[in-house]
Write a protein that binds this DNA or RNA. Structure first.
Lengths: 197, 197
DNA sequence: CCCTTTCCGTAACGGCCGTTACCGTAGCAG
DNA sequence: CTGCTACGGTAACGGCCGTTACGGAAAGGG
């Protein structure tokens, strides 16, 4: 049984390389050779770890979802009340100071790819609906008296605002700086904070 | 002086074809051969009308901006008061009943391309800032008493909400139907409608 | 009616892509 | 230490890309 490898570690390494290349050079620059160079190997290893380029893309997409889910879990767990958790979850989804700025660029790249690829579109929908469910749960905890329609509209408005800020800031960070994004989120949450009292 | 052509008409034809291909097959499907086939000609004509593929892309981007500007002008001119104009301008930016649903997909495509292309990024910033200026002017007309900071935050929040809804609806129309988008916009505008009174 | 000049379809080229086949090699069993 | 086997680096292939060169066709002037 000679020369065994750690398949999982390889897949993570390559998914991270995919993520970095995507953030740096966008979708058109995402080639197997670029990923291999970034990961410090050759295309041979890539094609042994993943059967096709699409499988690599899907795995990288899953990795992006996993990261955001972990961060959202942490933000929620660190909060004491429902409103604080809601503010923390939405706030970490917006541009962070700690250099997670690439994540929005990668997200936009996957989104654009999803418009022409059914598998990626499915992952996108699943991830977004998962995020919607989380926000929905927190909003409902803040405002128990609201009807289902109010809950749905507010939830999707908050998510759309956050993702819109992300997207616009990714393309024009000067016009949408971090403090403005946080201020916009605070203003949008003020309605809920009133209702929560 | 034999056999003259209408250069402008050709460029419009090809830009429209570019737009359609982009909406249908996304960025990866946007090739000169696909554009030529959609326009009913060959790549020879394309390369005579535009020196490079990038020039074609930029012209198509300008066309997209021009269309949205014309529609926004019309929406604004058809309104009687400032609040109505604001609601109309933002409402037409959201998903329309008249099949302009592709426009969001094209917009996302250009946005993703702009993340790796400086020229496209410049066009995107110019277009978005122009839209911001329009909304800013209308919000200021509605709420003359507001400070500059309030104006800026509200303006960018409204634009982020609208673009966020557009983007999310483009990838998951089932979760973000047209009536929900309009309801979300109405709720966001209610703050301004109170201030306008 | 023909000639000239512009136009544009045709076809080829070089390059980069994803993918594949092959073989040198590294590491564990005996 | 030696041989076997899975691993992964190398290089080539077919295909599609953007781009270019060329030649036939079409249209207005003489």
């Amino acid at each position: 049984m000679p020369k065994q490898r750690d398949v999982e570690a390889q897949r993570d390494l390559l998914s991270n390389a995919t993520w970095q290349v995507l953030a740096e050079h966008g979708l058109p620059g995402l080639t197997l050779r670029a990923v291999a160079e970034r990961a410090g190997c050759t295309t041979g290893l890539v094609m042994h770890a993943f059967p096709t380029k699409k499988a690599l893309l899907l795995h990288a997409r899953d990795l992006l979802y996993e990261r955001t889910a972990v961060r959202a879990d942490a933000a929620e767990a660190a909060s004491t009340d429902a409103f604080g958790a809601l503010a923390a979850v939405l706030g970490q989804a917006i541009d962070l100071p700690h250099g997670h700025h690439d994540e929005s660029r990668v997200w936009v790249g996957f989104l654009a790819a999803a418009l022409a690829d059914d598998d990626l579109a499915g992952r996108h929908r699943a991830a977004n609906r998962s995020f919607l469910a989380r926000v929905h749960r927190l909003v409902a905890a803040c405002c128990p008296k609201w009807t289902g329609e109010d809950l749905e509209r507010t939830t999707k408005s908050l998510v759309a605002l956050v993702e819109g800020l992300n997207v616009l800031a990714a393309a024009d960070p000067q016009t949408y700086p971090a403090d403005l994004q946080q201020a916009a989120l605070r203003a949008a949450l003020s309605v809920i904070s009133e209702c929560a009292r």
